[in-house]
Design a protein around this nucleic acid. Structure first.
Length: 425
RNA sequence: GUGGAUGUAGCUCAGUGGUAGAGCCCCGGAUUGUGGAUCCGGUGGUCGCGGGUUCAAGCCCCGUCAUCCACCCCA
């Protein structure tokens, strides 16, 4: 008896029954992105570590203590991507996508963060992210949010999520605010929690969204970023709010909303839910006008988002508990006619788009009908001695929920079977 | 990284230091060609792993791994 292997901590298997839901959710998101003109990027999972320390920020928790970092065989430091934007920007620069173009891009795939797993949080998680480069006006911010609003609507999750919005400002106004915040907090230093005390020197904005009650009380009267916006940032924020109002996108301004990644400027947002416990952020993002320059290209503005699919799928499940069946048609046969049944199944696949599952393995007809029922199929097709003798097959309706009696059944030629099921599908 | 809870059949879980259990699932039968309901029978276990205490450990002790929840962090 060998070792019994376990999955690595924080990693998950997605099994049949869940994978269908994943496909459905991903399908909706990707479809909406396409309808807004976003095109797919397929990006590597591994990047040079420095891309993240520089792009995301050295003092962020993400790079400070959550990255999977390792040396390759020549001693170069590489990291599994903890987020998507930095790699996307790198790819855009490297492939010349930012020259006189306004690319709208999306990507999909796993991100890795070494955190303690809990509900809605795994060490490998999946994001769909989108980025728009080259436009600094708030139209782009508004369009992204309108699009995300549509995504949640089409997923049937509008009632579950709310949009929180804030502006961090940019440039000197952001620096001025930072100073003002530190000035305000410094006298209260001893009353802050330990984490916040530490952040006072490294990343004071993060103190704004602390959950520690004592800290919250102090922060409640602290100056907010919106009070320090420069004229351009103020205009941008006002413009964005006006556009959202016109588009009918509901939002709540949360003056304490900040991001844990350093590259954000001006607009930041977060779609949050109450239904997932402590991990309430389902999708978030904002504007990052300084990032492209920080990564070595001439300045190009950008805005984007990341959506945590594990959490969206979890939400989808709480709102939509239906089972995903694996078949539409279940073909059963008497032992002598399994080959013929296979041909019937194949004809059905030729003539329709239905999922046709042929009974495999042993089992009498009783057992086969039981399998047909449990497969979730709507119809059973029977290829038995009587049917073959008449060069026909039987079609039986398995789902007649209204009446408790037996399902309807009739015998018919294969071409008629196809037209019948085509019409019913 | 910190704290709490939990690991027993594929799943959900009972189990007083003294023979390893139930329900669901699965398989077969009642029904040699008709599913769902009912009834009968059956398969399935290194009790997470490693030590220790004991005549005897699923149960007590220590360690360890994992899961869950919260902190933290974020999507």
């Amino acid at each position: 008896m060998g070792t019994r292997y376990q999955r690595v901590r924080g990693m998950r298997d997605v099994l049949p029954g869940e994978s269908e839901r994943w496909r459905e959710v991903e399908g909706v998101v990707i479809d909406v992105l396409g309808r807004y003109g976003f095109r797919e990027m397929r990006l590597p999972l591994v990047e040079v570590t420095d891309l993240f320390t520089r792009g995301v920020g050295e003092a962020t928790d993400l790079v400070e203590k959550e990255m999977y970092t390792f040396d390759d065989r020549k001693g170069k430091s590489l990291s599994l991507r903890p987020e998507g934007t930095a790699g996307c920007v790198r790819a855009c620069i490297e492939n010349g996508l930012l020259h006189n173009q306004v690319p709208r891009l999306w990507y999909h795939g796993p991100m890795f963060r070494y955190e303690r797993p809990q509900k809605g949080r795994t060490r490998q998680h999946t994001q769909i992210g989108g980025e728009v480069f080259g436009v600094s006006s708030p139209e782009v911010d508004a369009e992204i949010l309108t699009m995300l609003c549509r995504v949640f609507r089409e997923l049937g999750l509008s009632r579950e999520v709310t949009l929180e919005l804030n502006s961090l400002g940019s440039g000197t106004s952001r620096d001025r605010y930072r100073e003002a915040l530190v000035d305000y907090l410094a006298p209260h230093r001893d009353a802050l929690d330990g984490d916040s005390r530490r952040r006072l020197g490294t990343n004071p904005l993060r103190i704004l969204d602390s959950k520690v009650a004592a800290t919250r009380a102090i922060v409640a009267d602290a100056p907010a970023p919106v009070d320090y916006l420069g004229p351009a940032s103020q205009q941008h924020f006002d413009g964005l709010r006006r556009l959202l109002d016109q588009a009918g996108v509901d939002y709540r301004v949360n003056p304490h909303l900040v991001r844990g990644l350093d590259y954000y400027t001006d607009t930041v947002f977060e779609w949050v839910t109450e239904a997932l416990g402590a991990q309430g952020a389902v999708c978030s993002g904002g504007r990052y006008d300084g990032l492209v320059e920080r990564l070595g290209h001439r300045p190009v503005p950008g805005a984007g988002f990341g959506m945590g699919l594990e959490r969206v799928v979890l939400l989808h499940e709480t709102c939509n508990g239906r089972d995903y069946s694996r078949a539409d048609v279940y073909v059963i046969a008497s032992p002598a006619h399994t080959a013929r049944a296979a041909m019937v199944a194949e004809s059905l696949r030729d003539g329709t788009t239905l999922r046709v599952l042929q009974h495999a393995g042993e089992g009498g007809l009783v057992s086969q009908f039981r399998h047909a029922d449990r497969s979730g199929a709507r119809w059973a097709v029977i290829v038995g001695d009587d049917e073959v003798a008449q060069n026909r097959v039987s079609l039986k309706w398995l789902r007649v929920d209204a009446q408790p009696g037996r399902g309807e059944q009739k015998m018919l030629p294969v071409d008629e079977l196809i037209t019948t099921l085509k019409g019913a599908g």
